[in-house]
């Protein structure tokens, strides 16, 4: 029974990591841009849920409204960042990391000045309170909802990449930017749309996080490092790698935590990722290229 409880805890953690990392791997994969402000886009999504609840009142309606609104808020922030700063720096990925870190600092302080430094709570709707009993095991409904939400986001993103003209353009730019441009694809527009979607996914992740606890200005920093580890371990440019890596890291964290302590588990997960990169330096799944690696 314990094993199943750990399994659920791991999958649940994995689904949170997946939501946080999905958009990250999209923007990192396409543009090689490390967006350190991704965590703050999550924070913006979480505060969107807080504001929507303040306006609407009913917890259930506000959650369903906040999910699309969080996507739009995150996406617009991403679009703004791309248009003002990131597009100037595509040839300097490491510098982008530092610039977006500066953006992250500013956004955190804005949140602190607008909403106050103490954490705030967003009420979960009644239909998500309590737990589902399966074979003597109590599974919290909020956790199940986040699992389902992560699954929906993955399927939607995978379908969008695979079956729409936009997805085809995105994949073309990921595989070979110059050739895609030569075939008449506007990589400029594609980049912007990708950044909108990736940042929007961060907004959705932020809304989901309000179900798990109170939210504060530093919400993003708590998840961003783990989300980056998922992207590194999963390899870039493919949804599949991110899904597997997020699940694996979530499960590892849960099982290590069970046999040791939460803090030792973090260190063990880090060691495991470094060890895994010994076997596959490019991550689990990577787009084959002919560049020297």
């Amino acid at each position: 029974m314990d094993i199943i409880a750990q399994l659920f805890a791991g999958l649940s953690l994995g689904s949170v990591l997946l939501l946080a990392a999905l958009g990250l791997s999209l923007t990192f994969g396409q543009m090689g841009v490390i967006n350190m402000a991704h965590g703050e886009f999550m924070m913006a999504g979480a505060y969107t849920a807080f504001v929507v609840q303040g306006v609407v009142g009913d917890a259930g309606v506000s959650l369903l409204l906040a999910l699309p609104l969080g996507f739009v808020v995150g996406g617009l922030l991403g679009l703004l960042l791309e248009a003002t700063l990131i597009h100037r720096m595509y040839r300097r990925p490491l510098d982008t990391l530092l610039v977006t870190w500066g953006v992250a600092l500013v956004l955190q302080q804005v949140a602190r000045d607008v909403f106050g430094a103490p954490n705030v709570d967003v009420r979960a709707p009644a239909w998500l309170s309590g737990a589902v009993e399966i074979g003597g095991l109590a599974l919290p409904r909020t956790r199940l909802f986040i699992l389902a939400l992560a699954a929906v986001c993955v399927v939607a993103l995978a379908l969008a990449l695979r079956a729409t003209p936009l997805g085809r353009r995105i994949r073309a730019v990921v595989q070979n930017r110059d050739l895609a441009e030569a075939s008449g694809i506007s990589s400029r527009t594609t980049d912007r749309v990708t950044f909108f979607i990736g940042s929007g996914l961060a907004g959705i992740a932020g809304v989901a996080l309000t179900l798990l606890g109170s939210i504060g200005p530093t919400l993003g920093t708590n998840y961003i490092v783990d989300a980056f580890l998922v992207v590194v371990a999963g390899g870039i440019g493919q949804v599949k790698g991110t899904v597997i890596a997020a699940t694996a890291l979530g499960l590892m964290q849960a099982f290590f935590e069970y046999s040791t302590t939460a803090s030792v588990a973090k260190v063990l997960v880090f060691v495991a990722v470094v060890a895994f990169l010994q076997l596959r330096p490019q991550g689990l799944v990577s787009v084959r290229t002919r560049s020297l690696a």
Binding site: F28, G32, I34, P93, L94, L97, V225, D226, F228, L229, V231, V232, A262, S263, V264, K266, V267, V269, F270, V273, V274, A275, L277, Q278, P281, A293
Partner: peptide, 26 residues
């Protein structure tokens, strides 16, 4: 471990940051 496997650039930056996070949590 990292450089001989030619893990570099952004990947190295992320790993060094994760090390800092793990160290603090420990």
């Amino acid at each position: 471990a990292v450089f001989t496997r030619r893990v570099r650039g952004a990947y190295f930056a992320i790993l060094s940051q994760a090390l800092a996070a793990a160290f603090t949590i420990l």
